[in-house]
Computed example of a mutant assay.
Amino acid sequence: MNFERGSKPNPTGNLIAYCHVFGENPIAPGGKIIASNVVVSFLKIGDNYPVVTFPPVALPSKEELMKILSDNIHLYDVVQLPDFQMPENKEQANQYIQERMEQFNSMVMRYVEFCKAKEKKTQNQNLNDQIDQVSEPLETLANLSIEFRNTSGIAREATRLKMERIVDYFHNNHPTLDIDNFKKALSVPGKVGDELVGLYIQKFNAIQIENYETASDLRKRILEIESTAT
């Protein structure tokens, strides 16, 4: 597969496959491009990943395809397929189309395998390795807390699940941090909750760098706010 955008190790699950056409275009006369959209869902059923292959379309030029993709190009993988050239003999033409369909289906199957491999790699990645990729674990917690407070619905729940994994990390590796009360602060609404969350992050950071005087001052401020917020 010739990826023009995207890669085998990190597929998006949203693929545009296209080819140049020489001679007759079976989709529409005069079209110089045939393109199709393949979408692989990560909402798998067992080990099966649902796949939707949209009907191919004919376009007058590659430039036209580029215009269509330009607004949302970051969402797609793009693959160029071998050129399409229909034989003039009708019997050969039918056989050629059948072969191209089989090649296309084979390409789709390979793309699904790339998506499977990506998810398995993500699932198997150790949480501690993920945290080590950032300069400071507390930065991860701070960013997630902001995201959690500014989202709703499914997005909020997904963030909550990720935060719980980060919280478990701190429970196991930094038992001196007051993680349980930090979790309670996340549910405090409005600016008061925002201030509480920020103060907890500052306190955790002060403890980690062994600045216990600052940590004590922050704890007093936290207790004052919590006493009025309940």
Rank of each mutant, 00 (worst) to 15 (best):
D83F: 01
D83L: 05
F84L: 07
F84D: 00
F84K: 00
Q85G: 10
M86P: 13
E88Q: 03
N89G: 14
N89M: 09
E91N: 10
E91M: 06
E91V: 14
Q92D: 09
A93V: 01
Y96K: 10
Q98I: 03
E99K: 12
E99A: 12
M101H: 07
F104C: 02
N105A: 11
N105C: 02
S106N: 14
M107F: 11
M109F: 06
Y111M: 09
E113A: 02
F114K: 00
K116F: 04
K116Q: 12
A117N: 11
E119Y: 03
K121V: 08
T122Y: 04
T122H: 02
T122L: 06
Q123N: 13
Q123E: 11
Q125T: 15
N126V: 08
D129C: 03
I131G: 14
V134P: 10
S135F: 07
P137G: 11
L138P: 04
E139D: 14
E139A: 09
T140K: 09
L144T: 00
I146M: 13
R149M: 04
S152M: 03
I154D: 09
A155T: 15
R156W: 06
E157Y: 08
E157N: 13
A158Y: 08
T159S: 07
T159D: 03
T159R: 10
R160L: 11
M163P: 13
R165M: 13
V167Y: 15
V167R: 06
Y169D: 12
F170E: 07
F170Q: 00
H171Y: 15
N172M: 10
H174P: 02
D178H: 02
D180C: 07
D180N: 12
F182Y: 13
K184G: 01
A185R: 12
L186K: 08
S187Y: 10
P189T: 13
K191L: 08
